[in-house]
Design a protein around this nucleic acid. Structure first.
Lengths: 127, 127
DNA sequence: ATCTCTGCAAATGTTTTGCAGACAA
DNA sequence: TTGTCTGCAAAACATTTGCAGAGAT
Protein backbone atom coordinates (compact mmCIF):
# COMPACT_ATOMS: atom_id res chain seq x y z
CA UNK A 1 0.00 0.00 0.00
CA UNK A 2 1.10 3.47 -0.80
CA UNK A 3 2.74 5.48 1.94
CA UNK A 4 0.64 8.35 3.16
CA UNK A 5 2.06 11.44 4.68
CA UNK A 6 0.50 13.19 7.57
CA UNK A 7 0.24 16.76 6.39
CA UNK A 8 -1.23 19.92 7.75
CA UNK A 9 -4.09 20.19 5.21
CA UNK A 10 -5.15 16.62 5.94
CA UNK A 11 -5.08 17.18 9.68
CA UNK A 12 -7.17 20.29 9.23
CA UNK A 13 -9.84 18.53 7.21
CA UNK A 14 -9.95 15.62 9.67
CA UNK A 15 -10.17 18.00 12.62
CA UNK A 16 -13.23 19.76 11.20
CA UNK A 17 -14.96 16.46 10.55
CA UNK A 18 -14.19 15.17 14.04
CA UNK A 19 -15.37 18.34 15.67
CA UNK A 20 -18.62 18.73 13.75
CA UNK A 21 -19.96 15.19 13.91
CA UNK A 22 -22.45 15.86 11.15
CA UNK A 23 -22.63 15.40 7.39
CA UNK A 24 -20.59 18.08 5.63
CA UNK A 25 -19.92 18.68 1.96
CA UNK A 26 -16.49 19.45 0.55
CA UNK A 27 -17.58 23.03 -0.05
CA UNK A 28 -18.79 23.43 3.55
CA UNK A 29 -15.55 22.08 4.95
CA UNK A 30 -13.63 24.38 2.66
CA UNK A 31 -15.73 27.31 3.87
CA UNK A 32 -15.25 26.45 7.54
CA UNK A 33 -11.50 26.21 7.02
CA UNK A 34 -11.34 29.57 5.30
CA UNK A 35 -13.29 31.19 8.10
CA UNK A 36 -10.59 30.16 10.52
CA UNK A 37 -7.88 31.27 8.14
CA UNK A 38 -6.74 27.77 7.31
CA UNK A 39 -6.24 27.88 3.61
CA UNK A 40 -6.69 24.47 2.09
CA UNK A 41 -7.64 24.20 -1.55
CA UNK A 42 -10.97 22.70 -2.48
CA UNK A 43 -9.19 19.99 -4.48
CA UNK A 44 -7.28 18.95 -1.42
CA UNK A 45 -10.46 18.80 0.60
CA UNK A 46 -11.92 16.46 -2.01
CA UNK A 47 -8.78 14.36 -2.12
CA UNK A 48 -8.67 14.09 1.65
CA UNK A 49 -12.32 13.10 1.88
CA UNK A 50 -11.81 10.34 -0.68
CA UNK A 51 -8.86 9.17 1.36
CA UNK A 52 -10.77 9.09 4.63
CA UNK A 53 -13.70 7.33 3.00
CA UNK A 54 -11.30 4.79 1.50
CA UNK A 55 -9.79 4.08 4.91
CA UNK A 56 -13.26 3.72 6.39
CA UNK A 57 -12.73 6.65 8.72
CA UNK A 58 -15.48 8.67 7.08
CA UNK A 59 -18.76 7.71 5.52
CA UNK A 60 -20.30 9.39 2.48
CA UNK A 61 -23.88 10.21 1.70
CA UNK A 62 -25.40 12.14 -1.19
CA UNK A 63 -27.78 14.73 0.21
CA UNK A 64 -31.08 15.87 -1.28
CA UNK A 65 -29.36 18.60 -3.30
CA UNK A 66 -27.00 16.12 -4.94
CA UNK A 67 -23.93 17.09 -2.96
CA UNK A 68 -21.80 14.37 -1.44
CA UNK A 69 -21.44 14.80 2.30
CA UNK A 70 -19.23 13.06 4.84
CA UNK A 71 -19.16 12.22 8.56
CA UNK A 72 -16.48 10.58 10.65
CA UNK A 73 -17.34 7.08 11.78
CA UNK A 74 -15.62 3.89 12.83
CA UNK A 75 -14.79 0.99 10.53
CA UNK A 76 -17.25 -1.64 11.72
CA UNK A 77 -20.55 -2.02 9.94
CA UNK A 78 -23.29 0.14 11.36
CA UNK A 79 -25.87 2.76 10.48
CA UNK A 80 -26.47 6.42 11.13
CA UNK A 81 -29.23 8.26 12.95
CA UNK A 82 -29.31 11.83 11.70
CA UNK A 83 -30.97 14.53 13.79
CA UNK A 84 -33.12 16.78 11.65
CA UNK A 85 -32.68 19.70 14.05
CA UNK A 86 -28.98 19.85 14.88
CA UNK A 87 -27.67 17.56 12.15
CA UNK A 88 -25.70 15.47 14.62
CA UNK A 89 -25.02 11.91 13.57
CA UNK A 90 -25.04 8.94 15.93
CA UNK A 91 -23.78 5.49 15.08
CA UNK A 92 -26.32 2.70 15.43
CA UNK A 93 -25.57 -1.01 15.36
CA UNK A 94 -27.87 -3.29 13.42
CA UNK A 95 -28.89 -6.47 15.19
CA UNK A 96 -32.48 -5.86 14.13
CA UNK A 97 -31.52 -6.58 10.52
CA UNK A 98 -31.66 -10.32 11.21
CA UNK A 99 -35.44 -10.34 11.31
CA UNK A 100 -35.51 -8.44 8.04
CA UNK A 101 -33.17 -10.95 6.45
CA UNK A 102 -35.39 -13.90 7.33
CA UNK A 103 -38.51 -12.11 6.12
CA UNK A 104 -36.82 -11.42 2.79
CA UNK A 105 -35.85 -15.04 2.46
CA UNK A 106 -39.28 -16.37 3.33
CA UNK A 107 -41.51 -13.92 1.49
CA UNK A 108 -39.38 -12.96 -1.49
CA UNK A 109 -36.90 -15.79 -1.99
CA UNK A 110 -34.22 -13.15 -1.64
CA UNK A 111 -30.84 -13.89 -0.10
CA UNK A 112 -29.64 -10.79 1.68
CA UNK A 113 -25.96 -9.99 1.26
CA UNK A 114 -25.72 -6.33 2.14
CA UNK A 115 -27.88 -3.41 3.18
CA UNK A 116 -27.89 0.33 3.66
CA UNK A 117 -29.96 2.22 6.17
CA UNK A 118 -30.34 5.80 7.19
CA UNK A 119 -32.50 7.01 10.05
CA UNK A 120 -33.88 10.53 10.44
CA UNK A 121 -35.53 12.03 13.48
CA UNK A 122 -34.81 14.01 16.62
CA UNK A 123 -31.89 13.27 18.90
CA UNK A 124 -32.07 13.21 22.71
CA UNK A 125 -30.49 16.64 23.07
CA UNK A 126 -32.94 18.31 20.69
CA UNK A 127 -36.29 16.92 21.85
CA UNK B 1 -52.08 21.54 -10.25
CA UNK B 2 -50.59 21.94 -13.68
CA UNK B 3 -52.16 20.00 -16.50
CA UNK B 4 -49.94 17.33 -17.95
CA UNK B 5 -50.16 16.04 -21.46
CA UNK B 6 -49.68 12.45 -22.33
CA UNK B 7 -47.05 12.52 -25.04
CA UNK B 8 -45.13 9.98 -27.00
CA UNK B 9 -41.71 10.70 -25.44
CA UNK B 10 -43.16 10.32 -21.96
CA UNK B 11 -44.86 7.06 -22.83
CA UNK B 12 -41.59 5.77 -24.23
CA UNK B 13 -39.61 6.58 -21.13
CA UNK B 14 -42.28 5.07 -18.87
CA UNK B 15 -42.44 1.96 -21.02
CA UNK B 16 -38.70 1.32 -20.70
CA UNK B 17 -38.86 1.74 -16.95
CA UNK B 18 -41.84 -0.59 -16.64
CA UNK B 19 -40.27 -3.21 -18.80
CA UNK B 20 -36.82 -3.24 -17.18
CA UNK B 21 -37.79 -3.25 -13.51
CA UNK B 22 -34.31 -2.23 -12.45
CA UNK B 23 -32.47 0.96 -11.62
CA UNK B 24 -31.62 2.89 -14.78
CA UNK B 25 -29.88 6.21 -15.28
CA UNK B 26 -31.13 8.89 -17.65
CA UNK B 27 -28.24 8.11 -19.98
CA UNK B 28 -29.04 4.39 -20.00
CA UNK B 29 -32.68 5.03 -20.77
CA UNK B 30 -31.66 7.42 -23.53
CA UNK B 31 -29.33 4.76 -24.92
CA UNK B 32 -32.00 2.04 -24.83
CA UNK B 33 -34.43 4.33 -26.63
CA UNK B 34 -31.93 5.17 -29.34
CA UNK B 35 -31.21 1.51 -29.88
CA UNK B 36 -34.85 0.95 -30.75
CA UNK B 37 -34.91 4.06 -32.91
CA UNK B 38 -37.08 6.03 -30.53
CA UNK B 39 -35.46 9.40 -30.53
CA UNK B 40 -36.12 11.20 -27.30
CA UNK B 41 -33.73 13.90 -26.21
CA UNK B 42 -31.72 13.42 -23.06
CA UNK B 43 -33.30 16.54 -21.56
CA UNK B 44 -36.72 15.08 -22.03
CA UNK B 45 -35.62 11.87 -20.38
CA UNK B 46 -34.45 13.89 -17.38
CA UNK B 47 -37.63 15.92 -17.32
CA UNK B 48 -39.80 12.84 -17.52
CA UNK B 49 -37.91 11.10 -14.74
CA UNK B 50 -38.35 14.11 -12.46
CA UNK B 51 -42.02 14.04 -13.28
CA UNK B 52 -42.41 10.35 -12.50
CA UNK B 53 -40.46 10.70 -9.28
CA UNK B 54 -42.62 13.67 -8.33
CA UNK B 55 -45.77 11.65 -8.90
CA UNK B 56 -44.35 8.81 -6.83
CA UNK B 57 -44.42 6.46 -9.80
CA UNK B 58 -40.64 6.10 -9.82
CA UNK B 59 -38.08 6.07 -7.09
CA UNK B 60 -34.59 7.55 -7.37
CA UNK B 61 -31.30 6.30 -6.05
CA UNK B 62 -27.79 7.65 -6.53
CA UNK B 63 -25.55 4.76 -7.55
CA UNK B 64 -21.92 4.22 -6.60
CA UNK B 65 -20.68 6.17 -9.61
CA UNK B 66 -22.69 9.24 -8.64
CA UNK B 67 -25.37 8.82 -11.28
CA UNK B 68 -29.01 9.11 -10.32
CA UNK B 69 -30.96 6.01 -11.25
CA UNK B 70 -34.70 5.26 -11.25
CA UNK B 71 -37.08 2.32 -10.93
CA UNK B 72 -40.85 2.17 -11.20
CA UNK B 73 -42.60 1.56 -7.90
CA UNK B 74 -45.93 2.21 -6.22
CA UNK B 75 -46.68 5.19 -4.01
CA UNK B 76 -46.89 3.58 -0.58
CA UNK B 77 -43.84 3.59 1.64
CA UNK B 78 -41.64 0.58 1.17
CA UNK B 79 -38.09 -0.51 0.41
CA UNK B 80 -36.22 -2.15 -2.40
CA UNK B 81 -34.36 -5.43 -2.65
CA UNK B 82 -31.87 -5.18 -5.49
CA UNK B 83 -30.48 -8.33 -7.07
CA UNK B 84 -26.74 -8.06 -7.63
CA UNK B 85 -26.88 -10.50 -10.54
CA UNK B 86 -29.80 -9.42 -12.73
CA UNK B 87 -30.40 -6.00 -11.23
CA UNK B 88 -34.08 -6.67 -10.76
CA UNK B 89 -35.75 -4.70 -8.01
CA UNK B 90 -38.47 -6.06 -5.73
CA UNK B 91 -40.62 -3.98 -3.41
CA UNK B 92 -40.41 -4.90 0.25
CA UNK B 93 -42.74 -3.67 2.98
CA UNK B 94 -41.20 -2.64 6.27
CA UNK B 95 -42.98 -3.94 9.35
CA UNK B 96 -39.62 -4.94 10.78
CA UNK B 97 -38.72 -1.29 11.18
CA UNK B 98 -40.83 -1.10 14.35
CA UNK B 99 -38.28 -3.04 16.38
CA UNK B 100 -35.55 -0.74 15.11
CA UNK B 101 -37.55 2.33 16.12
CA UNK B 102 -37.96 1.13 19.69
CA UNK B 103 -34.28 0.23 19.96
CA UNK B 104 -33.34 3.73 18.80
CA UNK B 105 -35.62 5.28 21.37
CA UNK B 106 -34.36 3.14 24.23
CA UNK B 107 -30.65 3.05 23.53
CA UNK B 108 -30.07 6.40 21.86
CA UNK B 109 -32.89 8.69 23.01
CA UNK B 110 -33.64 9.14 19.34
CA UNK B 111 -37.17 9.70 18.03
CA UNK B 112 -37.45 8.12 14.61
CA UNK B 113 -39.35 10.13 12.01
CA UNK B 114 -38.20 8.66 8.74
CA UNK B 115 -35.85 6.09 7.30
CA UNK B 116 -34.28 4.83 4.11
CA UNK B 117 -33.27 1.26 3.41
CA UNK B 118 -31.76 -0.57 0.51
CA UNK B 119 -31.17 -4.29 0.39
CA UNK B 120 -28.70 -6.06 -1.86
CA UNK B 121 -28.41 -9.75 -2.53
CA UNK B 122 -29.58 -12.48 -4.85
CA UNK B 123 -33.16 -12.84 -5.99
CA UNK B 124 -35.05 -16.12 -6.20
CA UNK B 125 -34.66 -16.38 -9.98
CA UNK B 126 -30.88 -15.95 -9.87
CA UNK B 127 -29.85 -18.31 -7.06
C1' DA C 1 -56.51 28.90 -29.73
C1' DT C 2 -54.05 28.07 -25.81
C1' DC C 3 -51.03 26.23 -22.91
C1' DT C 4 -47.73 22.46 -22.42
C1' DC C 5 -43.68 19.76 -24.40
C1' DT C 6 -39.64 18.98 -26.93
C1' DG C 7 -35.06 19.47 -28.80
C1' DC C 8 -31.08 21.91 -29.02
C1' DA C 9 -27.34 24.35 -27.32
C1' DA C 10 -25.59 26.78 -23.68
C1' DA C 11 -25.17 27.23 -18.75
C1' DT C 12 -24.59 25.28 -14.19
C1' DG C 13 -22.55 23.06 -10.30
C1' DT C 14 -19.94 19.50 -8.44
C1' DT C 15 -16.07 16.69 -8.68
C1' DT C 16 -11.71 15.25 -11.01
C1' DT C 17 -7.25 15.78 -13.08
C1' DG C 18 -2.54 17.44 -15.14
C1' DC C 19 1.21 19.68 -13.87
C1' DA C 20 4.95 22.19 -11.59
C1' DG C 21 6.54 23.44 -7.31
C1' DA C 22 6.33 22.47 -2.04
C1' DC C 23 6.72 19.26 1.56
C1' DA C 24 7.46 14.93 4.53
C1' DA C 25 10.34 11.29 5.73
C1' DT D 1 17.03 12.62 -2.04
C1' DT D 2 12.87 10.45 -3.24
C1' DG D 3 8.36 9.95 -3.60
C1' DT D 4 4.11 12.05 -1.99
C1' DC D 5 1.24 16.26 -1.47
C1' DT D 6 -0.70 20.76 -2.75
C1' DG D 7 -2.66 24.56 -5.28
C1' DC D 8 -4.15 26.24 -9.40
C1' DA D 9 -6.49 26.23 -13.57
C1' DA D 10 -8.58 23.53 -16.84
C1' DA D 11 -11.31 19.50 -17.82
C1' DA D 12 -14.86 16.26 -17.15
C1' DC D 13 -19.49 14.93 -15.82
C1' DA D 14 -24.14 14.78 -14.81
C1' DT D 15 -27.98 17.68 -14.71
C1' DT D 16 -30.66 21.98 -15.64
C1' DT D 17 -32.43 25.77 -18.26
C1' DG D 18 -33.80 29.42 -22.00
C1' DC D 19 -35.84 29.64 -26.01
C1' DA D 20 -38.31 28.98 -30.31
C1' DG D 21 -40.93 25.80 -32.67
C1' DA D 22 -43.94 21.39 -32.31
C1' DG D 23 -47.65 19.05 -30.15
C1' DA D 24 -51.86 18.04 -27.19
C1' DT D 25 -56.47 19.10 -25.94
Amino acid sequence: MRTQYSTRPREQVSAILKREQRYLSAAEIHGLLRKSRQNVSLSTVYRTLDLLAGKGEASARVDAGGETTYVVCDQTHHHHAVCRKCGKVQDVSCEAIESVASALRTHHGFKLADHEMQFFGTCGACK
